[in-house]
Amino acid sequence: MRVSVRINGRRCEADVEPRTLLSDFIRHEAGLTGTHVGCEQGVCGACTVQLDGEPARSCLMLAVQADGRELRTVEGLADGETPHPLQSAFEQTHALQCGFCTPGMLMTLDALLRRRPDAGEAEVRAALGGNLCRCTGYAAIVEAVRLAQEEG
């Protein structure tokens, strides 16, 4: 099947098997490897991208379901060479260690802050409820959001 998706502002088209996962389309057809695949069951959140502006688990969607839609991956957060405020804040607060979960967290948090720029700690923690991190705990991640809100 022919799939055409706008990813980070650029059109990506490919012929895919109907069963191709969106995460595989992003990584293999678009060549964007920032979207990580962890559990392949939608539990860990590492594969989170934004589909039409809302967080979506790319390991639970078929590529054909995204046909004709707008997709944003972690590669689309930065403005050229300038990191997104969340990316800078994650670095400044040491909110990542291995970094495997970070792309999904950034995509989740970016969507939250676009909807609720003044989101409090409880909202941030609730939004992160579907993103698992085994390295850092969440204190530094929540602190990074606060810093990004201040600088944003």
Rank of each mutant, 00 (worst) to 15 (best):
V3H: 12
S4Q: 11
R6M: 13
I7C: 12
I7Q: 08
G9F: 03
G9V: 01
R10I: 08
R10Q: 14
R11K: 15
C12H: 15
D15V: 12
D15T: 12
E17N: 15
P18G: 06
R19Y: 09
T20M: 12
T20L: 07
T20W: 06
L22N: 04
L22F: 02
L22I: 04
S23V: 14
S23A: 15
D24A: 12
F25P: 06
F25A: 10
F25D: 04
I26E: 09
E29N: 14
E29M: 11
A30W: 02
A30P: 13
G31R: 04
L32V: 04
G34P: 02
C39S: 11
Q41P: 11
G42A: 09
G42R: 05
G42H: 02
G42P: 00
V43S: 13
V43D: 15
V43Y: 14
V43G: 14
G45T: 02
G45D: 03
G45A: 03
C47L: 09
G53S: 02
E54R: 12
A56V: 04
R57T: 02
C59W: 00
L60G: 10
L60Q: 10
L60M: 14
L60W: 03
L60T: 11
M61P: 03
A63G: 03
Q65W: 05
Q65H: 13
A66E: 05
G68D: 08
R69I: 09
E70H: 09
E70D: 15
R72D: 08
T73E: 07
V74N: 13
E75I: 00
A78I: 00
A78C: 07
D79A: 14
G80K: 03
E81H: 12
P83K: 06
H84T: 00
P85F: 00
P85A: 09
Q87L: 00
S88W: 06
A89R: 10
Q92A: 15
H94L: 14
H94T: 11
H94N: 13
Q97P: 05
C98Y: 00
C98E: 02
G99P: 03
G99C: 09
F100M: 02
F100G: 10
C101A: 06
T102H: 07
T102A: 11
P103N: 01
M105D: 08
M107S: 01
L109S: 02
L109M: 01
L113T: 00
L113A: 02
L113K: 01
L113N: 03
R114S: 12
R114I: 05
R116N: 15
D118Q: 14
E121F: 10
E121A: 13
A122N: 11
E123R: 12
V124W: 04
V124S: 13
V124A: 15
L128R: 09
N131E: 03
N131W: 04
N131P: 09
R134H: 09
T136P: 07
G137A: 07
A139P: 08
A139L: 14
A139Q: 14
I141M: 10
A144K: 10
R146Q: 12
L147I: 03
A148E: 01
A148M: 00
A148F: 01
Q149P: 01
E150I: 07
E150R: 15
G152N: 03
